[in-house]
Amino acid sequence: MRRRLVDSATRGLLFLTTLAGCSLLALILTAVVGRGFPSMSIEFLTREARDFGLDGGIFHQIAGTLILTASAGIVSFPIALGSALFQTEFLKSAGLKQALRIATYTLNGVPTILFGLTGYMFFGALLGMGVSWVTGALILAVMILPTVQISVLEAIESIPAHYRESGMALGLTPWAQIRSIVLPQSFYGIVTGVLLGLARAAGETAAIMFTATAFSGAGIPRSLARPVSTLQTHILVLAQEAVNPKAVANAWGAGLALTALVFALMLSALWARSRLRLESHR
């Protein structure tokens, strides 16, 4: 009797925690979709912002977010992959592997504003890159590096050991092993990692706020040294005009576009992960 009661109570408690988590997500999504949808139109998505965002659309901001996110991905992916391959294929010492993993997780927990600050001091001030596309891309690349690296590492480590052993026993060189076994077997896991990193970069504001973005007037950057305009900072600027209903409506519209972008990346990551599971069960 008592066991049944404890069982029911546990089940109820777990249901409540699940409900709380889902409700919060549903609440945020409802607010973003409900308030952002009225501003949404083809014109809003394809026109340039005018009058500090009070008029016009968010075309440059969408393009800027995509440019910065993609650049960060392009910079961080080879580093993450190289590091993960080094750790899984060449590094023997379990202690050193553990130390590197702890360092990566710790880096993942550093507040993003610190990435912005340190990054700006190094890339922006010391290397003279200033507030620019390249500074923002590099800072975001460093910021998403641990996320991408952990996902790539986990994808590679999830390859059944007997595949590697069989490759080794056939006399494959480490590079042949990587090319023929490791990369094909972990492909979807690597894609998942990159997409998760991109989703994180796409939603980031603090790290790029004063390192890469112009709050107004910036279009598509014509060079790496030019600043970009992003959805995140656009929302920030418009939200500061909270007394103006037009500004608030446009901020919600930009918010919905950003949420859709991040969701698309997340859903793609989930799809890639499900493919990875399918592949591993073949």
């Binding site: 007997h162 595949y163 052993e165 069989s166 080794m168 026993a169 056939l170 006399g171 494959l172 060189t173 042949a176 023929s180 076994i181 077997q185 592949e279 073949r282």
Partner: peptide, 29 residues
Amino acid sequence: LRGKVGMVFQKPCVFPKSVLENAVFGLKH
């Protein structure tokens, strides 16, 4: 050395490829 010393394991291991591709997997390299 491993090309000269072949090893077969307890659990049969085939790569997620076709029978033909498995047969020539090592040869390919």
